Simulated scan of single mutants.
Amino acid sequence: MAQLTVSGRDTAYVWVGRDTGGQPDPAAVLLRRAGALLLGRTETAVVLTHDREGRPVVRVDEVTGSVEVAVSVSRTAGLVAVAARRAGAVGVDVERIRPLPALALAHRWFPPAELAWLRDRPEAGQTVDFLRLWTAKEAVGKALGRGLRDGGLRRLMPTPGLPLRPVPGDELLRVGHPRLDGGLVLAVAVQASAQVDVEVVQRPGHEVTAERSASVERTSLPVVVRGN
């Protein structure tokens, strides 16, 4: 994992690596390294646990008390992404770009305003635009600690891009899409009242490759069943 210089600004850091499955879990390895870097401790001192809302955190226990860093994990075919932030909740989601019935999925799962926006986008980029909205919803749900429950798919997202943008109807939620090469779409969400920086510390191709693993096929996208 790349070395990290932690600035005084509120920043969400993201690491991306290969997910080969098996033990040790690549996500747990990245989480421990992220916690150690942000807290300035050794990896062996870092504990993986959850906060009161059920969101994952990495913690270091000391005589004077414990210190925590909010973290989030996403997996897609052959890859794992980990986000960490010291100042508050964070959510991350990553998807590979691949052929999808973007408009059919949006018609079933997204609010009318997002479906209309997607229809107006250039046809050649509709799949990527759909994935940007989808990953934004996933990342926001993780930052809230409830995933896509309670109407998460119907939650309206801001226009995809950077910097992180406020989620309509909730001034304390922000989400955006840091650039990630290699045929990937990445979304990061935070709970914050002011702008938060995003730094992708490690991209596919650095230290661990982003090669597709035939043994690992995970995706958060639902399947549209013909006739439903």
Rank of each mutant, 00 (worst) to 15 (best):
Trp109Asn: 02
Pro26Leu: 11
Glu171His: 13
Ala106Lys: 06
Gln126Ile: 01
Thr5Pro: 00
Leu79Asn: 08
Ala124Trp: 10
Arg41Pro: 00
Val63Trp: 03
Val80Ile: 11
Leu221Pro: 13
Val128Trp: 07
Leu79Gly: 06
Asp10Leu: 01
Val90Glu: 04
Pro160Ile: 12
Pro168Asp: 11
Val225Tyr: 11
Val82Met: 07
Gly35Met: 06
Gly161Val: 05
Ala89Gly: 03
Glu217Ser: 14
Arg9Gly: 00
Val216Arg: 14
Val63Ser: 05
Arg154Phe: 08
Arg155Leu: 15
Ala139Asn: 09
Arg75Trp: 02
Leu30Gly: 08
Gly147Phe: 14
Ser7Arg: 08
Arg98Cys: 09
Gly91Trp: 07
Leu173Gln: 14
Ala106Ile: 04
Ala36Asp: 10
Trp134Lys: 08
Asp181Thr: 07
Gly141Ile: 12
Ala104Arg: 15
Leu79Gln: 12
Ser72Cys: 01
Arg9Glu: 13
Ala194Ile: 01
Ala70Val: 00
Arg165His: 03
Met1Pro: 11
Leu118Thr: 11
Arg33Phe: 08
Ala189Leu: 12
Trp117His: 13
Gly22Gln: 09
Arg132Lys: 15
His50Ala: 06
Gly91Thr: 06
Leu118Trp: 09
Ala81Phe: 05
Ala89Leu: 01
Ala84Val: 04
Pro204Thr: 14
Gly35Ile: 11
Ala84His: 04
Leu180Pro: 14
Ala189Phe: 09
Val6Leu: 10
Val92Pro: 01
Val128Asn: 05
Ala113Lys: 07
Val225Gln: 14
His177Gly: 00
Val90Asp: 00
Arg96Gln: 14
Pro160Leu: 13
Val69Tyr: 05
Asp120Ser: 08
Val223Pro: 00
Leu153Tyr: 09
Lys137Leu: 11
Arg108Val: 02
Pro26Asp: 13
Gly40Arg: 10
Gly40Ser: 00
Arg218Lys: 11
Pro166Phe: 06
Asn228Trp: 14
Ala116Lys: 03
Ala83Asn: 00
Arg52Leu: 04
Val225Leu: 15
His50Trp: 00
Val63Cys: 00
Glu211Lys: 04
Ser215Asn: 10
Gly40Lys: 06
Lys137Asp: 13
Gly22Ile: 08
Thr20Ala: 13
Val6Asn: 03
Arg32Asn: 03
Thr44Asn: 07
Ala27Leu: 03
Thr42Asn: 05
Leu133Arg: 15
Ile97Gln: 13
Gly8Thr: 06
Pro24Val: 09
Val201Pro: 07
Arg98Met: 13
Ala116Ser: 11
Leu39Pro: 09
Glu114Pro: 04
Pro24Ile: 09
